[in-house]
Every structure is written in structure tokens, then in C-alpha cells.
Amino acid sequence: MAAAARVLGQVLRAAGAGPASARAVRRSVLAGPPRAGPAWRPSRCGSSAAEAPATKGEDDSFLQWFLLLIPVTAFGLGTWQVQRRKWKLKLIEELESRVMAEPVPLPADPMELKNLEYRPVKVRGHFDHSKELYMMPRTMVDPAREAQAAGRLSSSVQSGAYVITPFHCTDLGISILVNRGFVPRKKLNPDTRQKGQVEGEVDLVGMVRLTETRKPFVPENNPERNHWHYRDLEAMAKLTGTDPIFIDADFKSTVPGGPIGGQTRVTLRNEHMQYIITWYGLCAATSYLWFKKFLRRAPGT
């Protein structure tokens, strides 16, 4: 190494370099190669710091408009419930006017009955008590009792059944099904209510009822045991040999010892005002929180 330095010094002097330059070169050569260490790389701190505010601003902007969907959606649902309430009130008004209408003769064409549900009709004929059907379990429709029990946590409600009896219409020459009304469970056997088994021709007024499909959690009908949980007019008519026409006899049809008539439930639930208050209230609350967070905060926060 020393010999190489002397040779390099001679070369530099021959080339006209001064003694000081020669000494500097010799020291760098004698020092040897540079020590191994971490390689120098350009710092990206500056670019990361510049990109961070932009990314944070983009995230805040997305969150701001995403959260705005909550009050907007709540307002839309509240407005939809307003329209639903108008529709329900109109439906209730039509139903009440139909229920209170004067009875009309039962039409002979079953197709006409599709537009007459809850409409009072009048028929004349006689019952066939040997083919009774029982819709159960049922509770008696009693508006006075239900008004007194409103708001109570518990009430003693008697369970029983509706007695469905074939009725031969003399004028029309057809047989239909008539819901004579409610009997308690202990009176389900017709032998326990012989006085209520009407004989001979009678005039009846009842409300037309259409067939219904089984709702969730409602048991299947059991024709073998004569237990019916919903009105399946086709199956009932096939079993009794009647036409698939069904009416609920009114309260005036009640006779001592017999089923209690007037068991038609015509109430429609109208809870849309609660939904309107809920959705509009949620809209107001979330709008306030959104405004407070995104529009009233100090700049730079």
C-alpha cells in the first residue's frame, strides 16, 4: 500500500500537481476503501406528509355524505308513512260504510261475492246441524268487554269455537256455510245445546267472508278431527257438500242456548302515526348531529 502511494505521488508531481494535492490523495488512498454502511436513500417523508392531509380530507368528505343518507332515508320513510296513513284511513272509511250498509239479497253468482266482503246480505232457508264444523280456538267478539279490558295487563278471556253450519237457501236452491257464532269449549258438543239448534226455515242476515290463506305460525286445518284454524272455503265446502260461500250471521241471529252471533272482526290496525313520529323524529335527531359535526366545527378541526 505504501509503495503504491509513493508511485501515485510521483505520478502527480510529474503531472504538475502540488505537494499538498499529492498528500491529500495519498491520505485518501492510505485510508482504504470506505466502510460498509447503510445506503443512502432519498427521504419520502416530505411526500408522505403532503399526501396525508389530502387522504384525510377525502375520507372526511366520504364520511360526511355517507352519514347524510341516514336523515335523508328517515325523511323518505316518514313521508311514505304519511301516504300509507291516508290510504288506511280511506280504507277504514270504506269498510265502515260497507258494514253499515243495508243488507242485500245474496247473489247467486259466486263471482259477484268477490266484491262484497263485509257487506251484509240476507238469506232464507234452514240449517243442517248434522254437518257442523268448528273453527278453533276462538274468543268471543264483545266490543263492550274489549273496551273495558283495554289497557289491562291481563284479562280473563274465555276460549271456545265458532260453529260453522251448512244452510240451504230456499230461494236460490244452493247450500252455503254460515258462521252461527261463538260457543265456549264446554258447549262444543251439540248435545249440550239442543235448545239452540234452530229447526225450520229462518231469515238470516250475515256478512260475506271470503276464503283466506294460512298465515305464518297458524296450524294446518285438521278436517279429520273437525278442527279448522282458518277459512279454507274449498275444503269446507267439499266436506259438507255446499257451495264455497261463507257468511257470518249477525248478533240478531242469536237464540237462547245457541251460538252467539255477530262474531265478525272488522277492525283495521292503523299505527301509521306512530311510524310517522318515529321516522321524522329520527330524521330530526340525525340531521342535528350531522349539522353539528360537519357544518359547525371550526376550520382545521
Rank of each mutant, 00 (worst) to 15 (best):
Y162S: 07
G281M: 10
P184H: 10
F246D: 07
E234K: 14
R269Q: 12
R185N: 13
V163T: 12
V163Y: 08
I164N: 07
R231K: 07
A161G: 00
R214A: 07
L177C: 01
K252H: 12
I245Y: 01
P244M: 05
T211F: 02
R180D: 02
R209K: 15
Q263M: 03
G281E: 12
H168W: 12
D250P: 05
K252Y: 13
R269S: 12
F251W: 14
F167H: 08
I247H: 05
D248R: 06
L239K: 13
L204K: 02
N222F: 08
P259D: 10
N226K: 02
T170D: 14
I176E: 02
H168S: 13
L268D: 12
I245R: 11
D191N: 12
N270Q: 06
N221W: 04
Q263T: 01
N189H: 13
G181V: 06
Y162F: 15
V202M: 05
P184A: 06
C283D: 05
H229Q: 10
D191L: 13
P216I: 04
Q263H: 03
R180C: 03
R180Y: 03
T211C: 05
N222C: 04
P259F: 11
N189G: 07
V178E: 05
D248C: 10
R185W: 14
F217L: 13
Q274P: 03
T240P: 10
E234Q: 14
H168L: 09
N222M: 06
K252F: 11
S156V: 15
E201A: 11
N226Y: 04
G206T: 01
R225N: 12
T213N: 14
T254N: 06
F217A: 14
T240V: 08
P259R: 07
F246K: 04
H168F: 14
V157T: 15
K187E: 14
I260P: 00
R265C: 03
F167D: 10
L204Y: 01
V208L: 01
V157F: 10
